[in-house]
Simulated scan of single mutants.
Amino acid sequence: MNLSELCFHLKNRPRMYVMDDRFTTAVAFVEGFNQANDGRTLSGFQSFVINQLNGGKRSSLHWSSLIAKSEFSSTLDNDVAIMDLSPEAQRALINRMIDLLMEYDACQTGEEPPSHNEMKNGS
């Protein structure tokens, strides 16, 4: 399985791969996939996320925290943990992560990322 296929399955068949709808569970699965590939799959993803979400400004935060802060900064700044976000917010974070992973994969492969309809239809 490659990163594009992983994104498709996480988007369309999440229960085949993760046991719940928490963002942290999806992140753990993606990180496990990366580790199973000796870290090659996401070797530049941290920098990619920093450039996409943090304007290229260096950050010591893990890419998952950058995604969460970019989407729910005001909520998370009030000492609310990612795990305490609503189910809708968790799903929004998972979708944002998948979108960024697809964009990153497209940059790595030189292809256009699939549209949301293509991801949903498996095209």
Rank of each mutant, 00 (worst) to 15 (best):
S123G: 13
M102V: 12
F29L: 03
L85Y: 10
S64M: 08
G56S: 01
M16E: 06
A36Y: 14
D21S: 14
E71G: 01
R96E: 14
M1R: 08
S70M: 00
G56K: 08
S64Q: 08
W63L: 09
R15W: 07
I50W: 05
K11R: 11
K57R: 11
V80S: 09
F23E: 04
E111K: 11
F23Q: 09
L42Y: 02
V18G: 11
A92V: 09
G55C: 05
S64I: 14
E103A: 06
K11Y: 15
L93S: 03
S60K: 12
L85S: 11
F8L: 12
D21H: 12
F48M: 07
D79H: 06
D105T: 10
D105Y: 00
M102F: 04
S59L: 08
C107W: 08
P114D: 02
P114K: 05
F72H: 07
C107M: 04
E118M: 09
M83H: 05
Q46A: 02
S43W: 04
D99S: 08
F48C: 04
V30N: 14
F23A: 13
Y17F: 10
E118P: 13
V49G: 00
F8E: 15
N121G: 10
N34T: 06
S115W: 09
F8T: 11
S65F: 15
N34C: 06
E111C: 07
S4M: 09
G32D: 07
D99N: 11
N2L: 14
